[in-house]
Design a protein around this nucleic acid. Structure first.
Length: 194
DNA sequence: CCCTGATTCGC
DNA sequence: GCGAATCAGG
């Protein structure tokens, strides 16, 4: 494959959108992320700045520490600035699927008060979840990848919040156990006559 | 371990 | 110009 105008244009577009080199490579096909990165550099858009074409040569290293800028506005109250509450949504590789904003099912803790939707999950699956949660990697949002289970555990507003992080099942966003509770067969949830 | 971009250098 | 190999970082 060669860098045709079209391909270069797509490259520019995607890079501009903040897509990663590997994602761009995947989209283009026939090239590796290295090829993409190499091209990006040759095109001179490695550093997304001025559209005017002015190339800012990076000194790369500060010459010396002669002057003391000290541009410190000096403002840092000790109070926490209200948490943004990280959404459970995780980045999707090709920016397509995206999790359907699953509210808070989180059958995480052991002795959880019966939740309206959570109690429809099969006991077996629940037990399984409780089991693996002990083995969870407990990843932070930033540590998640396409291959780590994105099942959230705990309250995002607290420190006690993490993602399962185990290896996901092929194609799914969760590990085997969490897939079990996340994707219930229609037939399986046909009960609760009570 | 997975990933990211940056750089080098033979082609 | 190209991109695999390598590097440096998360």
């Amino acid at each position: 494959m060669s860098w045709t105008d079209e391909r270069v244009e797509l490259l520019k577009k995607m890079w501009g959108e903040g897509q990663s080199a590997s994602q761009i490579a995947k989209e283009l096909g026939g090239v590796t992320r290295n090829a993409v990165i190499g091209k990006v550099h040759r095109l001179g858009l490695s550093n997304r700045n001025s559209t005017g074409g002015a190339k800012s040569a990076e000194p790369k290293e500060k010459p010396a520490a002669a002057a003391k800028p000290v541009p410190k506005p000096k403002v840092q109250p000790k109070t926490e600035p209200a948490r943004p509450i990280t959404p459970p949504a995780a980045k999707s590789a090709d920016g397509k699927p995206m999790l359907p904003a699953r509210k808070q099912i989180i059958p995480a803790g052991q002795p959880l008060p019966p939740q309206p939707s959570a109690n429809e999950i099969s006991p077996e699956a629940l037990a399984k979840v409780n089991e693996i949660e002990k083995k969870a990697k407990r990843l932070s949002l930033m540590e998640l990848t396409e291959r780590t289970c994105k099942w959230p555990v705990g309250d995002p507003a607290t420190e006690d919040f993490w993602f399962c992080g185990l290896s996901v099942q092929q194609g799914k966003p969760y590990c085997e156990a969490h897939v079990g509770v996340a994707f219930q067969p229609m037939s399986a949830r046909r009960d609760r006559k009570r």
